[in-house]
Write a protein that binds this DNA or RNA. Sequence first.
DNA 1: GTCGTGACTAGCC
DNA 2: CGGCTAGCCACGA
Length: 107
Amino acid sequence: MNISKLQDSVYLATGKIPKGKLATYGQIARAIGKPRAARAVGSALRKNPFAPKVPCHRVIRSDGEIGQYAGGQKKKIAMLKKEGIKIRDGKAINLDQKLYCFKRSFL
DNA sequence: GTCGTGACTAGCC
DNA sequence: CGGCTAGCCACGA
C-alpha cells in the first residue's frame, strides 16, 4: 500500500467511471477536491498500481484529446473505441455525451 | 529542505 | 482557429 493520499483519491474517483463513459483529468481533480491538480492526477494515473481495476484509459484531456498513456495513446484509443467511445483524429467525439458526472461526496 | 519533472488547463497572441 | 506561454499540484532525488 505504498501510495500517497493523492493517488488513493485519484484511483478511487477513476475507478468510479463506468464503461462507455469518459472523464477529464480536471474533472477527477475536482472530484477529489483539487481542481488545480490535474497534473498530479495524471502523475498518479501514470503509476496506476490498480491497472485493470482503475480504467485509466477512460481519463482524457479537457480539450477532448486522448492525452498520454502508459501503454501508448494508440492502445488507449483502441480500448476506448471498444468501449463504445468514438475517436476521430485522436480526439473523442460526443465528449459531452460520454462525460461522466462525478459525485461530490468528497467535499 | 530545495530543485526539477510530469498522462494537465486556461489564457494570450 | 491554431500555436505558445505561464500557472498549479504532487512526488522523487
